[in-house]
Simulated scan of single mutants.
Amino acid sequence: MEKRAAILAAAKALFIRNAFAGTSMDAIAAEAKVSKLTVYSHFGDKDNLFREVIRSRIEDLLPEDIYQFDPHVGIEQTLHAIAQAHMHIDCQAEHVGTFRAILSDCRQGNPRYGKLLWEEGPARMHRLMENLLQQAVDHGALDIPVVKTASVQFFSLIKGDMLLRRLFGCDECPETAAAEIEAMARTGVNTFLRAYVPR
């Protein structure tokens, strides 16, 4: 387990630093201070290793329990907690670096990195969100005609342009980030609820 953890940590650092295409299994093994055979025996290939790195990181940052519907908790409170968690992730320099690495790989004609991240990140997130929204609809807390569409709308409302500004290097670490995160999360949730709270 210690070797596995060391490999994951090494792979995470190298994928962020060198992107997917620029990271070799040899380099990961050297960084983790294990043999390349050990890396392959734990993860099979680079795609599976990358998937495990992303899955592990996202489960740490966005555990599934934040998407659980509790009929005894107001839906506004649940949605606000989700909004806050997502906004904080988008504003961390490490994650901005990861997104830049994805764009670099895609520009070089290697979309696998982005596709793997999409499957373990946004696709997983939308499945969990759709399940939460459907439960809220079933309990009468929300009135949503198309849950899949509403999930996309929710994340669009809460994210704004903060991540894009960081990707373009406009404001890497603004002093007002905490207040902006709170305001964007709150107003995004309020706008979503105005559309879908039962009349």
Score class of each variant (00 low, 15 high):
92 Q>R: 13
27 A>L: 05
93 A>M: 04
125 M>R: 15
152 V>I: 13
63 P>R: 05
145 P>N: 02
115 K>P: 00
56 S>F: 04
100 R>F: 06
12 K>Y: 07
111 P>K: 05
34 V>H: 09
147 V>E: 07
177 A>H: 03
16 I>H: 07
51 R>G: 02
189 V>S: 12
182 E>R: 06
144 I>P: 05
25 M>G: 02
5 A>H: 12
75 I>C: 10
190 N>L: 08
108 Q>P: 01
9 A>W: 01
31 E>V: 04
61 L>A: 03
136 A>D: 07
51 R>Q: 06
171 D>N: 15
194 R>G: 11
74 G>D: 14
55 R>I: 00
186 R>K: 11
159 K>S: 13
139 H>G: 03
91 C>L: 06
27 A>T: 11
37 L>K: 12
8 L>W: 09
188 G>S: 08
189 V>A: 03
73 V>P: 00
22 G>D: 00
106 C>H: 09
3 K>E: 13
53 V>C: 05
49 L>V: 04
31 E>M: 06
2 E>K: 13
70 D>P: 03
41 S>P: 00
113 Y>G: 05
109 G>V: 01
97 G>N: 15
142 L>G: 04
174 P>M: 02
78 T>W: 04
174 P>D: 00
78 T>I: 15
96 V>M: 05
174 P>C: 01
85 A>K: 13
119 E>G: 12
42 H>K: 10
143 D>P: 08
51 R>P: 01
13 A>K: 13
68 Q>F: 11
116 L>K: 03
